[in-house]
Write a protein that binds this DNA or RNA. Structure first.
Lengths: 220, 220
DNA sequence: GTTTTTTAAAATATCGATATTTATTGACAT
DNA sequence: ATGTCAATAAATATCGATATTTTAAAAAAC
């Protein structure tokens, strides 16, 4: 969302720090889906005031990670198989559109960013930073579409999907070898500007992990 | 004692009342696109505290009606022709999907809600309540898709579009006769469960007004 | 033995004051 | 003139305290 572009190296506001912490806690499942989020409890946990917590929670509403009910506080967005499937469907539709637009507007400069991002993702070993690199690769792929809203939706949906991945496996490494190959397929197709192939590879990538996750999540 | 002097007759919280007011002020253009939104100024204007204003603004971020820059406050989302065209594109894609899903899941109960909503929209004369009825009709159309996120996106995009319509004409009545016919076309196709015809009619409806608005908005 | 009402506790929402940060102004040097 | 830099003004962000509402528990009524 629109707080993300704060690359300022100095001290961020308490609200922003709180926003990032809470976001991470929800994505990783440290704050379980559907859980009541009590201001006082979070305030202590993060050692900050009530105002930053409230404001951070209000902002997380944008990302559909938190639900707000008037006069009844906040809760972590609930998770369900139906919700996961909806996310998957929307991702496929919107990322297909974004990727095709990106490719239409392809330049060698974008191509280079893409190759670089892919390279960085491949070389990472640490699981924690892999997630960042992986998102960066996917967003670079879509980032040439010159459609800020579309990109925002895709980024949002990406994060929501990550949440389900964590929910399913606790971050288990589910055959990264296949996934590396799939990434190369997408990259190659994008670089040679073959929109149909790139889109097919991307969507297949999502649907494969989607099918895997669906089996894991049957207990929702 | 504080709630006694609350001029709104309803039961909602100050934050919610503020949210609704600000939302309306942005959609109607009373708060112009791109305008700096100063807490103190709004606080006085709406006769409430700073906390409800901040929280309402944070919530409006979800709707892409307000932008927040850390430590630099809030501003009404800027408007541009490119942004309008992006909204139009996303609407066409997402509403097409939602409408088709709605029709797949069609029931006589939905059919009845649709006819009723259409009837109410037709009979309204007052411009202000027409807007509500119009949105209700469009959302009923999509509301049978059983996709909460998709519906949320569509509702968001609908509002953003309204904003541009107000921006373009100050609410001028641009040939309502044609529009009434277009609505009947959509309704008829939906009721006879012809997804292709319904979608075509809906998208044509959007693209026609889109083209009209684009000419009006050339000064952005 | 339920259902309703009352009371007490917890949590949310809001206010008013203050601390931080950003924006503006005007003197001064180049 | 123009650009830098301090001093000042303005605005944002945050805190701590309080009011309001909701939730839970206990008591009373049917």
């Amino acid at each position: 969302m629109n707080m993300m572009d704060n690359t300022n190296g100095g001290e961020a506001s308490a609200t922003r720090a709180t926003y990032l912490s809470l976001r991470d806690m929800i994505l990783t499942g440290e704050l379980p889906a559907g859980e009541k989020l009590k201001i006082e409890q979070l305030r202590r946990m993060l050692d900050t005031g009530a105002s930053p917590v409230r404001e951070a929670l209000s902002l997380l509403t944008s990302d559909m990670l938190v639900e707000r009910i008037d006069q009844r506080g906040f809760r972590a967005a609930p998770a369900s198989l139906a919700n996961f499937e909806e996310i998957l469907m929307l991702r496929c539709t919107l990322e297909d559109m974004a990727l095709r637009q990106s490719i239409v507007r392809a330049t060698s400069e974008w191509e280079e960013r893409l190759v670089l991002s892919h390279h960085r993702m491949k070389r990472v070993v640490d699981t924690a930073t892999f997630e960042d690199a992986h998102k960066d690769f996917h967003m670079t792929l879509l980032g040439n579409a010159a459609s800020p809203m579309l990109e925002r939706y895709c980024s949002q949906l990406y994060d929501l999907n990550i949440r389900y991945r964590n929910l399913a496996a606790g971050g288990a490494n589910y055959q990264r070898r296949d996934i590396a190959f799939e990434h190369e397929e997408i990259l190659d197709a994008a670089v040679r500007r073959d929109a149909n192939a790139a889109s097919a590879a991307l969507l297949s990538h999502y649907r494969l992990t989607g099918a895997y996750l669906t089996t894991q999540l049957s207990g929702l």
